[in-house]
Amino acid sequence: MNWALANRDLLVELTWQHVWVSAVCILLGFALALPVGWFAYAANRSPRRPMRQLSGGVLSIGSILYTIPSLPLLVILPSLLGLPWLSVLSIVIALTVYAFAIMVRSVADALRSVPPMVLDSATACGYSRTQRALTVTLPLAGPVMLASLRVVSVSTVSLLSIGALTGVRNLGSLFTNGYNRDFTTEIATGIVLTVIVALVFDAIIVASGRLLMPWSRVVRAGGGE
């Protein structure tokens, strides 16, 4: 505790680093997964077989990306992309790839989970394609997407610590540094702060879900739909 207080400035700086880098990766991964997942969903409903195969292909690429082990990816990526060693950029790219890989399939699943009857009904009411996509399909897919966003958030926050092994500064630096100095307090502080960041992110996601989708929590009195 004394150590933490004495190094307050360092801890604030590392936490801030950790927060913004993981936030960027999560948001970027989601922003990429949304259109690609939507494409996979739409292509899968096409009457043409090549389109459906393409949809399957896109989703498998997502799964394959996810199986690449993280540490080697962090090591290879800079040389692959010609980025300087130790760059935050290569970590952002690597973690965005993971976030994207997890999200892309769940975006497609989320869209598929929207009841076809509700979509038919919206069409019958006179929604245009775009209106229906943005104001019916997207919000109704929201709860399933939100669930996977929570998984991505936790996994990104914890994966980012590994980035410290390549020398980039974040809360993971407390593990590497504490390990090198055989200083348990520093390691423990790093763990506690990482967990707190993950919990705060999760709370923000859940809260925005409640705010944006108040309907998803109402009691199902009548059952059905």
Partner: peptide, 21 residues
């Protein structure tokens, strides 16, 4: 088609209401 549908009332089985509205 979109204009046409807006000018015609449609009621379906299970009502087909929008669950988020």
């Amino acid at each position: 088609p979109v204009e046409l549908r807006r000018s015609i009332g449609y009621v379906m089985q299970h009502a087909g209401l929008l669950p988020h509205r």
